[in-house]
C-alpha cells in the first residue's frame, strides 16, 4: 500500500462530506456531513504520520486533539439544534430565517 491510496480515500470521504453539507436540507444531516469531513482529515493525519514520519507520533497526537474537539463541537451543535427546534418547530435550514429582516 502506498500513501496515495490513503490520501485518495480521505479526499473521497471529504468530498462526500462537502456535498452533504451543501445539499442536505435537514440540519442534523449537515452535522453528520461535517463529521465525515473531520474523519477525512484524521485519516490524512494518521496516513502522513505513518508514511512520511515513521516512528513519530505527532500526526496521531493532532488527530487525537481533533477527535476531542469534534466531540465538543457535536455536543454544542446538537444542543443548539434542540434549542432552535424548540423555537421554530422545524429541522429544515431554509426555514431558519428569524434574523431575516
Amino acid at each position: 500500500m502506498n500513501l496515495g491510496s490513503y490520501v485518495a480515500l480521505s479526499a473521497a470521504l471529504f468530498l462526500i462530506g462537502v456535498f452533504g453539507a451543501l445539499t442536505r436540507r435537514n440540519i442534523i444531516g449537515i452535522l453528520m456531513a461535517i463529521e465525515l469531513m473531520f474523519n477525512a482529515a484524521n485519516i490524512n493525519l494518521a496516513a502522513f504520520n505513518r508514511y512520511l514520519h515513521p516512528g513519530g507520533i505527532i500526526g496521531q497526537t493532532l488527530a487525537l486533539f481533533i477527535i476531542s474537539i469534534a466531540a465538543a463541537e457535536v455536543v454544542v451543535g446538537l444542543s443548539l439544534v434542540l434549542a432552535i427546534y424548540r423555537n421554530t418547530d422545524t429541522v429544515y435550514v431554509e426555514d431558519y430565517n428569524l434574523l431575516k429582516g
Partner: peptide
C-alpha cells in the same frame, strides 16, 4: 464544487502518491 475540488485533490494524490512505508 466537488468536481473542482477533486481536480485539486487529484494533484495532491499524484504528488504524495508514491511514498511507501519504511
Amino acid at each position: 464544487v466537488c468536481a473542482a475540488s477533486l481536480a485539486g485533490f487529484w494533484k495532491i494524490v499524484r504528488m504524495a502518491g508514491g511514498a511507501l512505508a519504511t
